[in-house]
């Protein structure tokens, strides 16, 4: 793991007291990064526009289960749906994401409107059935969150990348 010692070919003592040189080199790297690998301008703009997602009225449903992190991988399985569970107080949202779209269920079962979000813009509006189930045919690749309105409250899930 420690590749630090792999190429110890130079004399450490000869480099003592070279703090100023380290600072200089770091500064050169900073300049090089500004030239060769800057933050893409349109990403910066998207981050500026993300301010619209600031909403203190909505409750945040935290991600409490993510199959990428919490599940044991199935050997040889290639097209495994990603299973996510979000929770805000008494309300739980289970979501299953595949390449074809997503299916979900709001528990306890209830009617709710659901928006699939991929950014600050308004998302595709869906309505759950009496069992709290909903499906979405689009492919939710990229940044992803759900905004729910139940009879009582507005809930937004944690953002993640799918």
């Amino acid at each position: 793991m420690d590749e630090m010692d792999d190429d110890e070919t130079f004399d450490e003592a000869a480099y003592d007291g070279q703090d100023a040189d380290a600072d200089l080199l770091e500064e050169e790297l900073r300049r090089a990064a500004g030239i060769l690998d800057p933050v893409p301008a349109q990403l910066r703009q998207i981050a500026v526009e993300a301010y619209a997602l600031h909403d203190l009225d909505a409750k945040i449903a935290e991600l409490t289960f993510d199959s990428v992190v919490d599940a044991i991988p199935v050997r040889g399985a290639t097209d495994v749906p990603r299973m996510l569970t979000f929770r805000a107080g008494e309300v739980t949202v289970d979501v299953e994401v595949t390449g074809e779209g997503l299916m979900g269920q709001v528990l306890p079962p209830q009617q709710a409107s659901v928006e699939v979000l991929s950014g600050p813009q308004t998302g595709a509006p869906l309505t759950t059935d009496d069992m709290g189930r909903f499906t979405y045919g689009g492919s939710p690749a990229g940044p992803f969150a759900l905004r729910l309105r139940t009879g009582r409250e507005a809930i937004v899930t944690d953002w993640l990348t799918v």
Partner: peptide, 17 residues
């Protein structure tokens, strides 16, 4: 690109919390 956006979306969402 996607992770960068997700991070800022989450930051906006959690702002104030």
């Amino acid at each position: 690109h996607e992770v960068y956006q997700t991070v800022w979306f989450r930051f906006a969402q959690h702002l104030g919390r």
